[in-house]
């Protein structure tokens, strides 16, 4: 019986360990991918607008002539970067978000995206940022 218990315990540790590692792996891969996406959005913005990445993203966000998808991505990237100098620009576009409301990213500035960006820029925790920043 004790031998059986020891074997079960050993198996439990093994399965839990591998499960934990898989989760950790998925977290790191997702975080790396977020970093890659942020970099992509920054590069696209810097091709069109002058300044460093935060300035370029801010200009993209405020550009009414730009595509909504690109502007939403800019808001998301600003939140991910967490540079407080962009807070004023993001807050200017933020009109308020009600929980549960859906948005069409290609037709409007997504308030949920801006809400998340404001939260992150105000010092909210971004658990994936340490991997890629």
């Amino acid at each position: 019986m004790t031998r059986q218990k020891a074997r079960l315990k050993n198996l439990g540790f093994c399965v839990a360990g591998i499960g934990f590692l898989m989760l950790l792996f998925m977290f790191f891969v997702t975080a790396s991918w977020i970093g890659y996406e942020v970099k992509e959005v920054c590069e696209e913005a810097m091709l069109k607008y002058e300044g460093d990445r935060v300035e370029a993203l801010t200009k993209l966000l405020e550009d009414d002539a730009a595509d909504f998808r690109a502007r939403n991505s800019a808001a998301w990237a600003l939140g991910q970067l967490g540079d407080r100098s962009a807070l004023a620009a993001v807050k200017k576009s933020y009109k308020g978000y009600e929980k549960g409301t859906r948005c069409d990213r290609s037709a409007e500035l997504c308030q949920y995206e801006l809400y998340k960006a404001v939260k992150l820029l105000e010092g909210g925790m971004n658990i994936s940022a340490f991997v890629w920043r």
Partner: peptide
């Protein structure tokens, strides 16, 4: 970077299964 994580995961899983 993802491949690097795969290699790390591989090594870690090997260690755990070896121990098991």
């Amino acid at each position: 970077t993802v491949f690097c994580y795969v290699v790390c995961l591989n090594c870690a899983v090997y260690s755990i299964t070896f121990k098991y």
